[in-house]
Design a protein around this nucleic acid. Structure first.
Lengths: 213, 213
DNA sequence: CCGCATCCTGGAGGATACTG
DNA sequence: CAGTATCCTCCAGGATGCGG
């Protein structure tokens, strides 16, 4: 069951033995936003073969990273405290990867869980601390995300609600975060469609969530 | 040349597409401590197939993570600024992995590059700031490491020199860092052999390099 | 000898069908 | 819905060859 060995006695080698297999870190990321059922995980991981998902879940469970937990007649997968220790890793890797995003291709999707982590990655709490509390309702590729910023606190979750600014966007939202796309341009080109609220709030959004140089 | 796609438009997915392949992060780690030649990389990566090393180097070069640079008639591989951006990732992963180190097996080796990163991972600069400047000369598995701690500054490099404390140790040195092994016990069991200097300095070492809870 | 390229084999990854 | 079983593809692993 143990992953293949790298023949090195070091922290990094051990880490990649545990979570270096394909899909593993993406599964961990999706679980960072809360427990998930098998089908939810499969839906968030486009085209992952179901046998691979099952195998990864077993391996990650054997490694003590996640556990199967019964929740009122259904099984959910949730991270253990050890697995939650991967949060800095996921955020650091995500921040690095955001610098190298190419143009989104048609087949590439954005899931609530992935966008939630990307936003947490790019969240600048020092900037947010100087701004009034703001809530955003974002419809990303037919999935709803509710984002609440209050001082240094960030809360990103699914679902909808009454927000200061509501907008719909595709993958291009990440290009705003990575600094490749100006909010005004995004609105003009239709990459972001405002549903209600002041357009200036999208500038605030872009200021709050912006990858550090 | 691009690695296989995860079908997601997110920072993490992009990152694992670039450095998620087997051996890739270990190569990056070794290059974090300085440029290396092909043979040096191969020596530090136990049993990596040479064709895999060549393939990874090409992929990482194509991704803009490293570059081949001629250095006085020989080729060395060095990280680009973009590749050096992976340092927080490597440190975070290493810190997490250090919590899950099992007992070292005979076939597992410790290289200067891996130990250097592990020490940087576990370096507690707040603690070091309150201690006098200290230098350590460590012989790890027939490789020499010179460690200089001065206030919040840490310098780890190869080679030897006149140090306040000189000792020889095997992989067990990491067990001290991860808190599984007390310095006194290490000396008593012979896991660490003092060459010269005060044994109390090994306590200081263990205090300076200790994985945070 | 160093720095790869080539060849071959075994096992992991990928797509699909199937079952409790 | 939550996986298991099956088949096939492809990459990693290992040995070897070869040019500078």
């Amino acid at each position: 069951m143990a992953a293949r060995d790298y023949g090195q006695y070091s922290g990094l080698a051990r880490a990649v033995e545990l979570v270096g297999e394909r899909w593993a870190l993406l599964i961990v990321r999706d679980l960072l936003t809360g427990p998930r059922r098998y089908g939810e995980l499969a839906a968030g991981l486009p085209r992952i073969p179901t046998n691979i998902l099952a195998a990864r879940l077993k391996e990650l469970q054997a490694a003590g990273i996640l556990r199967r937990a019964p929740r009122s007649r259904v099984i959910v997968y949730e991270l253990t405290p050890f697995g939650r220790g991967l949060e800095p890793v996921v955020l650091a890797l995500g921040a690095w990867g955001l610098q190298a995003m190419g143009d989104p291709r048609d087949e590439q999707i954005v899931t609530p869980a992935s966008m939630a982590i990307d936003l947490r990655t790019a969240f600048r709490e020092d900037v947010a601390a100087g701004l009034p509390a703001t809530s955003y309702s974002a419809r990303i590729d037919s999935a709803d995300l509710f984002i609440r910023v209050d001082g240094r606190l960030l809360d990103v979750g699914g679902g909808t609600g009454r927000a200061d600014l509501a907008f719909a966007a595709g993958p291009a939202l990440l290009r705003i975060v990575s600094g490749d796309l100006a909010p005004r341009t995004a609105i003009e080109t239709g990459a972001v469609a405002l549903l209600h609220g002041d357009a200036a709030l999208l500038d605030r959004f872009a200021t709050t969530f912006r990858l550090a140089a």
